[in-house]
Every structure is written in C-alpha cells, then in structure tokens.
Write a protein that binds this DNA or RNA. Structure first.
Lengths: 350, 350
DNA sequence: CATAAAATGATTGACGTCTATCATTTCATG
DNA sequence: CATGAAATGATAGACGTCAATCATTTTATG
C-alpha cells in the first residue's frame, strides 16, 4: 500500500537498483530490453520519484533573481512584498530568491542589471519594458544558459522563455464591459485616462476598451484620452478641467496609475453625480475609493499570484520540465466595494 | 552561505546534536539554560527545519478524506475534479487523498459517511448541510481525534475545526452591486431566483442582495423570489411565466443552480430586450451563457482554489500548526464575457 | 574460442532529520 | 563526599535518492 520506491521498481523489473537508477537518471550504458523492463515496472507500480529525497541527495539549490522597478507605486510595492513573502516559503524547497531594483520604465537600467549579474543565478524574472537594448541583454543571458521570464510587462518575445502576467487587451475589454453594464438603456460618454502614451500595456488596454465599446453600437461614445503620466497631480488638474469642459462625461476608465488624484476629483462631487469609474490594481488608494463609494470597480492582476506563478514557471524551466504545463494564465480579477479581501497581502498561494 | 542544519545549530550553541534535537522536538530532559542557548543559536543562524528531510525520516504520511455530494451539478463535478487533480501533486508531499460520495443535501447520509470510516484517515473535509445528526457525527469524530473541515457548505461551527468557502452574504452583495451598476439613472425591478428555500447559503445570498439594493434608496425594487429547486425545467417554466406576467423585470439574480433553463428563456428574447442577469458558478452552462451574451456576470467561488486551500488547512491542522495563518479567505471572483479563463480546470495552484 | 566491449550488480557515503540506546558527566541532597 | 537523579554526549540505523566506484557477468566480434 505504501508508495513504491526505486528499490521496488528494480525488484519487480528483475534488475539491480543500480540499473534502475541508470534508467531513470539517463546515465546510459543500459541494454534496451532492461530499459523497457524498468519502464514497465515503473508503469505497473505507478512509481513516482520522490523529488524531496532526490533534491536532498543532490543538494540542489536554485537562485532566482527578480529585477523589479524601484518605483514607489503601490502596485510595485505589492509585487516586491509578494517576492519577500515567497522568499520564506521557497527556502523550504531549496530555492533562494533575490531582488534587484532598477529605475522604472528604464530599459537601459534593466539591461544593465541583466548584464551585471546573471552569473550567480539560475533564472531571472524581470518586469520588462520593450527596447532593443533589453532584448539584446536577454538574448545574451540566454546564450549564457540563464533563462529569462518576463512578468507584468513583456519584452523580447523571441528571447525570453516565458511571460507571466495578464492579457492587457482582456483587461481593457473587462473595463469596457463594466462600463457598458453601467450604460444600459442610456447614452454615455466615456473618458479614457492614459498613463504613458508609449507603454504597450496601456495601448492594449485602450484597444480592448475600444473594441467592446464599439460592439455596443452607438449609445456610448469615447472621448479622446487624456494623458496624466501616472501622476496624481496631473490627474487631478487635467481631469478636473476635462470634466468641467465636458459635463456629459458619464464614465471614466483610468488605465494607469496616479489615481489618488482621481479620487480627489470624485470626492468633490456628490456621489450620485459622479461618472462611473473603473480603474486598475487594488492598492490602498483604490481600496479606499471603493470603500468610500468614489469609484465603482477595480481590475486587479493579483501580484501575489503573479509572483507565485512566476516562481513555479522558473522551477519548471530549470528542472527541464515543460513549463507550459504549469502556466495557468492569470485572469484579472474584479473588485467591487463588497468583495474586498481582508487587508494584508491577499496572497492566495498554494 | 548555505542553509544551516541542526548540526550547525548544535555547534554554535555549544551543545551536542542530541541536545539540540531534544530541544526542537520537545523531548524534554533538557536544562533551561541549554534550551535558551539552542533557541538563541536558532535565531542567530536563522535556522529552519528542513521539513522534507524531516518527513522523509519520519515516514509520515497523511490520509485526508473528502466527503462530496454525488450530484451531477457541474459545480460539484468541478469540485470532484479539483480533488483528483490535487491527489497527484499532493502525493509528492506524502499526503493521500480519497473521496467518498454521498447523496447531495442529505445530512443523514453525510453523517453516516463520517461514522463509517474516520478511523483510517487523519482529517476529513465535507461539503456540509446543517442538521443535528451531522453535528453529532462531527463531534464524535473530533472526540476520536479526527478533525473535520467544512467546505463550500458549513455546519456545526462549534465542532468542525475550520470552514473553507466564500462568505455568501458577500456573494449576494456583489450580485446586488452589479445589478445596481446596471440600473444607474433608471428604475428597475429585480427578480431573485432561489434554489432551495431552506438552504442557508441561498438565504444568505438573498440577504446580501437585499442589503445592497436597499442602500440604493428607491430606484430598484425587488420582486418576491421564485423557487425553482435547482431544476432547469422548473426554472424554465416559472421564469417564463413570471417574465410574461411582469414585463418590467429588468434584472435577475439566480442564486442557485438550474441555469440551463434560464439560458433557454433568455435565448428566446432579443439580447437587447432581456433583463440583466447575474448568476453563480462558472460551469459549461454559465460559460456558454456569457459567450453568447445571454447573461452578464457570473460569481464564482473558484472550486479548485477551495480544494487547494482546504488541503493546506488540513495539513496545518494535523501538523499542529495554526491553520488560521494559512487561511487566506476565498474571495468570490467575477467573470464577464471577456475574462473567461482558458478551458480546462482553471486550477491556479500553488 | 579468445578477447574486448558492453552491461549489470553490489556497495558506499552523502543529504538533513528522526528515534533510539547507552555511556558519561553534572548536579542537588543528605 | 557518596549517591541517585538529571542532563548531556556519542553514535547508529533508517528514510529515498544521487553519484560514484569496482567487480562481475553477458554479449558481440574476429
């Protein structure tokens, strides 16, 4: 009844432990017929290697490095915190995590970080910004045998091994869908608020929004987006101005950061008079906004889960397993006033 | 630089391995001052016991049993599938999972299942239905040293050790919030559709809905709920009738199952003419409904995650750890047409 | 059939922990 | 200071695997 060991396999295959070991560890020098007998025994017994014992014996340990933006935006802090949290639990599995901080949205700094180290770790995860120099750095790392996983932001699809993150077009579509629900049987005017114009993820979200709104036919129109550079101050100023100029705005989709400014503007209005607001990332700010009824919905990419999943993918990569089996894509979550998770990291791991 | 072992701890504490071992395994017979020295060494070195090596040595293995409804409702099948999926990965951690099926909503059968076995397993998880007999069975099991975890459905809060599942009041509130979003600047009439009247989870969801709708003031009214006993046929018949009698119904909240019937009724209408629909659990049926635009939102309790979390809690319980540290509550998810996860089990694990 | 090459068996010492046993040292107490 | 109890040390075998060595058997080849 107990779990079979390699000893059991060897016995039922009629070979020695050494031969069975040669087979499962592909050491070579084994006759074809012996290989088959061992394989059959493995199948018949339902043998599975005890990975923990194996790792113990191998004294294998991995070093994974996270290259994260040093931005003080809440989302990135949450990412950072998630890595810290995982550091502890992963230690039990013999994997060490370390974090390098680089200036946000600075591909050159990112590339420099990859070029600087890379020798002393087995796999790198990076919040990437698209740029030729970064692509080159990723390619070079890969040539040195260090795989790169992008998370949250993707880059160099030909060279990085995997991407963990949400589909930003989907995220934009979700926002559009919510805004459509809020405009049933009435016309509307929706204002998209962009962070950076160049950022691909922001463009994708905008595309998603446009697609879903277009499907609605004619009742909802879109304003020209305003660009606030992820800054609360710019958000406050520009948003107040646009709302004053165009009082018919009935919905806002804030695609990037700087939402503290948005909350301020909403707080100045009667809550029944304000437009419907959808924005991104569950942060202390957006949480407050929901609780106070200043905004309606938050689309969240679950940073803790993203980090956990990234680590699983990295493990699969360095173990030579097919990491695609591991990737259950990150589905963005929707938070309303009523389903806010308990404070603390909502680190649903598992 | 490598992870310290108990040998290292003993050395820096200036005691023998045996004494360090006596301390961390609480075997007694150690002088207070030695205990302190070992504790300090553990702290200074940041020693953490290698659980895998420990389990290997102990040849500890656990047997957890799931008592699940044998209902063929998709949700329960998903639960069942999630347990199967976990069975494989948990084997690596020396825990065996087994499933017992009992008739749905039958507390006596549930109690019988608990009374029958219970001897050959270390912890039981059960989708519970409230009833005195079941409470007694859970109490008896506990007396025999077998902890019971309820999942999805709770019962006997005094006797079961933990509950893993969603807060159904929250779920109802979420539905209410979505329906409010769909009634901005227009009046509405919302029809709640109940499964069983007696089921506590359904009552709680209805309470949540009522609370949020009431906060809205006056614009939205609630119809008297109809009760369809989770049956597609009853759903189809009754729903068609009520909608015919009361054409002003602008929103539907289906609290239980039988939603195939609901889809049929919606399909007969023009998609622009139908009420807004919110229902529960992402199943093939509800998925189809979203894809075809027959319904608007699905509130899902993520069965795969519930199962994974249940197992974590059970592990913590039998290991004598504080399982409360493990429980990150299950936050219900919202699915729209646009964020449907790839088919297959959306098993976001570990 | 002799010989080399290939395949196999047997065994050993790790890895970090648990559990147990037995010998030795330290301590309090009369 | 003698005595027994308490505390400590030392050590060994297991858990399931890896990695290596060396001896032995089987097989192919001329």
């Amino acid at each position: 009844m107990r779990k079979p060991t390699l000893q059991d396999v060897a016995r039922t295959a009629g070979v020695s432990y050494a031969t069975a070991d040669r087979v499962i560890n592909k050491r070579g020098g084994v006759a074809q017929k012996s290989i088959l007998r061992v394989r059959n025994a493995i199948r018949d017994l339902g043998y599975e290697r005890d990975f923990h014992a194996a790792n113990l014996s191998r004294k294998r340990h991995f070093h994974f490095r996270f290259v994260l933006p040093n931005s003080d935006h809440s989302f990135f802090r949450a990412l950072h915190a998630a890595v810290e949290a995982e550091t502890i639990r992963q230690r039990a599995d013999r994997v060490m995590l370390s974090v390098v901080e680089v200036p946000a949205h600075d591909p050159d700094a990112q590339a420099a970080a990859l070029e600087a180290d890379g020798l002393d770790c087995d796999c790198v995860a990076i919040v990437a910004t698209e740029a030729p120099r970064l692509s080159a750095a990723i390619k070079a790392l890969r040539a040195r045998g260090v795989s790169v996983v992008t998370l949250v932001g993707d880059a160099a699809p030909e060279f990085r091994t995997a991407y963990v993150g949400i589909d930003n077009v989907v995220a934009g579509r979700m926002a559009g869908r919510l805004l459509r629900m809020a405009h049933i049987a009435r016309p509307g005017l929706v204002l998209p608020v962009l962070g950076a114009l160049g950022a691909r993820d922001h463009r994708e979200r905008l595309d998603g929004l446009r697609a879903v709104i277009a499907e609605d036919g004619h009742a909802i129109r879109l304003c020209d987006p305003i660009i606030v550079h992820d800054h609360p101050e710019a958000m406050r100023r520009q948003l107040a101005q646009v709302l004053a100029e165009t009082p018919s705005i009935s919905g806002i989709y804030s695609i990037g950061a700087g939402n503290r400014g948005l909350l301020d503007v909403m707080a100045e209005r009667g809550s029944s008079e304000r437009p419907v607001v959808v924005l991104h990332e569950l942060t202390p700010t957006s949480r407050t906004g929901l609780e106070r009824g200043l905004i309606d919905a938050v689309i969240d990419q679950k940073p803790a889960q993203e980090v956990a999943l990234t680590i699983e993918v990295m493990k699969a990569i360095v173990a030579g397993r097919d990491w695609r089996a591991t990737v259950s894509e990150i589905t963005p979550a929707i938070f309303l006033k009523d389903n806010l998770p308990a404070t603390g990291l909502a680190g649903e791991s598992a």
